[in-house]
Structures are given as C-alpha cells and as structure tokens.
Simulated assay, not measured.
Amino acid sequence: MTPRHATFAGLGALALWAFLALLSRLTAPVPPLQVTAIGFAIGGALGLAVVLARGQARALAQGPLAWAHGIGGLFGYHALYFTALALAPPVEANLLNYLWPLLIVLLSAPILGLRLGPRRLTGVALGFAGCALLVGGGAGFLDPAALPGFLAALGCALVWALYSVTARRLGGVPTDAVAGFCLATAALAGLAHLLFETWVAPGARQWLALGLLGAGPVGAAFFLWDLGMKRGDPRLLGTLAYAVPVASTLLLVAAGEGALTWRIGAALALVAGGGWLAATARAS
C-alpha cells in the first residue's frame, strides 16, 4: 500500500468517526460502558471473521508490547474519556479531548522525525480554533472541583496521540491484529460496565445503532486508522481530524438534533482552511 492510499484509509476512519455522536445518541438509554463493550465486541468479531477468512489467524500472535500498545490505546482512551465526561463539564472536557489531533501533529516531529514547518503548524492551529469555536463554552474551566475530569480529558488526548504516532514504530505488527485488540477492549469495557453500571436491555433501534457502531466508528475505523498511521502521513491526518467534530455536528443537524448556526459555518471555514494549508504543505 502506498503512503497516499494509506492516508486515504486514515481519512476513511475520520469519516466513520463523524457518525459516532449520532449513532451514540441512538443507543440511548444504554449506558456508555455497555455501548463500548457491545460496539467493540461487534467490531472485533467482524474483524476476526475477516482475518480468519483471509487465513491470517497468526496475526493475532503478537508480543506483549503490541498488545499493551493496542489495548492501552483503545481501552485507555475510552476509559479516560468517560471518566472526563463524568467528572468535568462535558463541553470543556470534550474541547480538551480534541487536543489529540494537535498532539499527533506535534509529536510527529520528535517521535517520527517528520518535518512540520509553519504551514502545517498554521493549519493545525486553524483546525483547533475551529473546534474551540464550535464547542464553545469555557466557563467550566473555572471550577476547581472539575480538575480531575480535566486531567482525565488531557490524559485521553495524550493517550490517543501517543497510540496513533507510535503505531508507526510498530509497523511490523499487522493491521489484522487490531481485531484482537478490539475484542480485548470489549472484555475490559464489559468488566467496567459490570462494576460501575446497570445493564439496560437494548431495543430494536438500539441494537441497530450498536451494530452500525461496531461495523463502523468502533470497528472498521480502527483498522483504517492503523493503516493511515503506519503507512500514511500522520501530520495531514492529524490536521484533518478537526473535520470530525464539524462533520459530526452537521450530521446531528441533518438528523434534527440541532440547528445550523454561525458557529458551525465559521468552524467549517477554519477547519477547511487549516486542512488546505496542511494538504498543500511540502511532503518532506
């Protein structure tokens, strides 16, 4: 797979993650850890079926470092994210969470030795500005009681950025192994659900949403992201990741879950401008 094709694979993951918020809303009132466990179980099972059909079962036989990286990234991010939403105002926590695209770009230099340059840095700064404008808020940052939640939000941003960037250092680990990481994440999320939540029986609508989640945003997306991070351009993907909250908001509006505002339009312009700057930067 060429770097260009791998970058397009990463873009496919971003496109699927744009549907995460809408599909998550459709799973209500199923609690979040239960949603995570079921979604990852479906995604992991579908991935495993493909792996077995291709005769690549040996891809699951990885060393401790690969398993720690995969499970730490997938489960660690989601555990910290749910903790942040539980302990801090969700608007401000979500904004801190969306530092991960910026961190991916910045960490690409010291960890991978990739050149950044002013054009890329300006692009990612515009993307974050668009995200901050879209998410809005800010008053919640003044609440000292929310500090543990804010630290968890920063932690999940750092975990996902490190997981994404260091995936390139584990280029020998085949993408098929992600199926095992998803199933392990499902098991851990299921355990956390039993400890902290009460089971809610999903109805037909919830099962449909859970199936789509498992097939897409918490399934195929992680396989595509792995390809993008290992063989594509993480700097470009990190910058374009700021399109996810904008696209997610537009999908919610289209589904009748909100209304178009000047913030959405301005955020779209900032993200598009930042993406254009990053996409047209020198490839070196």
Rank of each mutant, 00 (worst) to 15 (best):
D143G: 04
P144A: 09
P144Y: 08
A145Y: 02
A146W: 07
A146H: 03
G149A: 08
G149S: 04
F150E: 08
F150S: 02
A153Y: 03
G155W: 08
G155A: 12
A157S: 12
V159A: 01
V159D: 00
V159T: 11
L162Q: 03
Y163F: 12
Y163A: 03
V165K: 07
T166C: 13
T166E: 02
A167F: 02
A167L: 10
R168L: 07
R169P: 01
G172S: 06
D176F: 04
V178H: 04
F181M: 14
C182D: 04
C182H: 11
L183I: 01
L183R: 13
L183Q: 14
L183S: 07
A184N: 10
A184L: 10
A186V: 08
A186P: 13
G190E: 14
G190K: 08
L191S: 12
L191V: 15
A192D: 03
H193D: 05
L195W: 15
F196I: 12
E197N: 07
T198E: 14
W199Q: 12
P202R: 08
P202S: 07
A204D: 12
L208D: 00
L208A: 13
L210Y: 03
L210N: 00
G211S: 10
L213A: 02
G214M: 09
A215H: 03
P217M: 01
G219S: 06
A220V: 13
A221H: 05
L224T: 00
L224F: 06
W225R: 01
D226M: 12
R231I: 02
G232C: 06
R235Y: 08
L236M: 15
L237P: 05
L237R: 05
L237K: 06
L237W: 01
G238F: 02
A241I: 04
Y242S: 09
Y242C: 04
V244D: 00
P245M: 09
P245K: 07
V246N: 00
V246Q: 00
L250F: 01
L250P: 06
A255K: 14
G256V: 10
A259G: 08
L260D: 03
T261S: 15
R263T: 05
R263Y: 07
R263D: 09
I264W: 08
G265L: 14
A266C: 14
A269L: 15
L270M: 13
L270A: 11
V271H: 03
V271P: 06
V271W: 03
A272F: 11
G274W: 04
G275H: 07
W276G: 04
L277V: 14
A278E: 09
A279P: 08
A279C: 02
A281E: 10
R282L: 13
A283R: 15
A283L: 15
